[in-house]
């Protein structure tokens, strides 16, 4: 039963994420590019709203709960070294600035029928493969 609830929670969380990306029109790369060109600053409200709420929960949940309601422990985000993170961020910024699509919207956009995003999704998969194949560092 707990197992079932666990998977339902993961799915429900994803559904909320996908709803949010759709409501905020972030699944339209044109809207993202209009932010990057300073024509509409809405993206900052999306990022701010999402991060603000998550900040509260990320900081408070481990203080009030011994463990997550359906699992054994709170996870932490895996991190790269500072150097790799910054190089990755520069490259991600270039790619994102070219196409206006990030990994989440590339997936969610398909559900809303924005099918050309499949091209971006496949290209991202290829980029992830090349990274793992030839640029994995010492892993």
């Amino acid at each position: 039963m707990k197992k079932l609830l666990f998977w339902f929670s993961v799915l429900l969380s994803g559904i909320l994420f996908g709803l949010g990306l759709s409501v905020s029109t972030m699944i339209q790369p044109e809207v993202v590019l209009s932010f990057l060109r300073f024509e509409d600053f809405g993206l900052l409200l999306v990022l701010g709203g999402a991060t603000g709420l998550t900040l509260v929960v990320y900081q408070l949940a481990p203080r009030f709960l011994d463990r997550p309601l359906l699992a054994d422990q709170f996870g932490t985000k895996p991190m790269e070294t500072l150097k790799r993170t910054l190089i990755g961020a520069i490259l991600f910024g270039i790619g994102w600035g070219i196409c206006g699509v990030c990994p989440g919207p590339a997936i969610a956009g398909l559900g809303a029928g924005n099918w050309p995003l499949l091209i971006a999704l496949l290209a991202m998969l290829l980029g992830a493969y090349v990274q793992g194949r030839w640029f994995a560092g010492n892993k």
Partner: peptide, 15 residues
Amino acid sequence: IGGFIAGFGARFGNG
């Protein structure tokens, strides 16, 4: 092109 570079960069920098 953008997707490829963004996918590579996101995975290189883990995020």
